[in-house]
Amino acid sequence: MPMIAKPRFLPMRIHVNQALARRLPKNHPIIPILENSTSKINSGYHGEVEVDFHLKYLDDKEHHIFRDLRLSHPLHHFQLDNLILSRKYILHLEVKNYTGTLYFDEKLKQFYQTANNAEKGYQHPLTQLRRQNAQFLDWLAARGFSGLPVISQLVFSNPAAVIKTNDAGIRRLVCKADQLKAQLSTVLSSASVDIMTEKEQRKLSRLLLKENLPHKPEVLKNYDIHYDELRKGIQCPACSAFYMKRKHRFWVCPHCHHHSSHAHVDALLDYFLLVKPTITNSEFRDFMCLSSVKTSSNLLVSMGLPHQGINKGRVYFAPLNFHSLLEERRIQVRNHPINR
């Protein structure tokens, strides 16, 4: 298997949408919009995971795989679904999870989908692919890696999709996920000479990881939702009801009587997702519905959060393993008996 230099996590927008849905009244008009947004993003994510499966055949000594990179550009940030770094080539794979019949009209430079007896046009995915390629080449040149060739491929992950075109040349740039291995064997057959040394490959890998800028949606601002509209307090991990009470070092659910020593951690993750990446003792008490300064201080200290300042001026930051904690919570929720 190849070396996964940067793994793929569930998109941050899904975590944010789910946190907002939890923290709003169930009849809030934005809930259906959040559910629709989450469904679309989740579909794209599963398409990318499908392509990840078909990349397992690559030699681990030769390839460094980066998933969901987001890099800076003078005009704006750009994202790369999959970047594969080898000493012989750099490969960029853009993934689409469309269903139905997909038609590339290269005479009119249009791309459209026919599904459920309806036709819908989209931004031409090859235009997007070429733009991302140009932005990445600019990024490389600005960091002393000019002249490196970048090979790009558009991959459709849905096995039921049918691809049609009026230009046979499209086949060199487009394939389905289950055809990826054969497609890359053809496309990469001419890449027989090293374009960088092993030292340069390691240097570029470090740069990509260092300069990756994960996207953090400002969801309250985007949906024009005020902080005071959020449901504060601790949600029960057993029955999902609000509001757990703090009793003798435990959080106790008044509905199902479940006890938890760490239910505040999930609430704090919601705060960091929705509000901001820092929190003070006063803000913690407000969001957790606590009155005791000492209890709040003890809970914050017990989590080992990065911080600066002392006494009332102390500010706590989101944990360094924030993404890992979100993934752990997702797995726990998925495996909870109520969700099986």
Rank of each mutant, 00 (worst) to 15 (best):
H215F: 10
K216V: 15
K216I: 11
K216C: 15
P217A: 09
V219F: 13
V219L: 13
L220I: 05
L220C: 03
K221A: 06
K221I: 07
D224R: 04
D224T: 07
D224A: 13
I225V: 12
I225C: 06
I225Y: 08
H226R: 04
H226F: 02
D228G: 03
E229G: 06
E229P: 03
L230W: 15
L230D: 15
L230C: 08
L230G: 12
L230I: 12
R231H: 14
R231E: 08
K232F: 14
G233Q: 09
G233P: 10
I234C: 09
Q235A: 09
Q235G: 10
C236N: 01
C236A: 03
C236Q: 04
P237N: 05
P237L: 11
A238E: 11
A238L: 14
A238R: 07
A241P: 05
F242I: 10
Y243M: 07
Y243S: 14
Y243L: 14
M244R: 10
M244H: 13
M244W: 14
K245Q: 13
K245S: 12
K245R: 12
R246S: 04
K247L: 06
K247R: 02
K247M: 03
H248Y: 08
H248C: 05
R249H: 08
R249D: 14
F250G: 02
F250M: 15
W251C: 05
W251E: 14
W251T: 14
C253H: 01
H255I: 04
H255E: 01
H255F: 01
C256Q: 00
C256P: 00
C256A: 00
C256H: 00
C256T: 00
H258E: 02
H258C: 09
H259P: 05
H259C: 07
H259W: 11
S260R: 11
S260H: 09
S260W: 08
S261G: 09
S261T: 08
S261P: 13
H262M: 02
H262L: 03
A263H: 14
A263G: 06
D266N: 15
D266Y: 15
D266Q: 14
D266C: 12
D266E: 12
A267I: 13
L268A: 03
D270W: 06
D270G: 15
D270Y: 10
Y271M: 05
Y271G: 02
F272K: 01
F272Q: 02
F272Y: 10
F272C: 02
F272I: 01
L274S: 04
V275R: 04
K276I: 00
K276E: 04
T278L: 15
T278M: 12
I279G: 00
I279H: 00
T280P: 08
N281L: 03
S282T: 13
S282Y: 12
E283P: 13
E283C: 13
F284N: 12
R285L: 10
D286P: 15
F287M: 11
F287D: 02
M288S: 08
M288Q: 02
C289T: 10
C289Q: 12
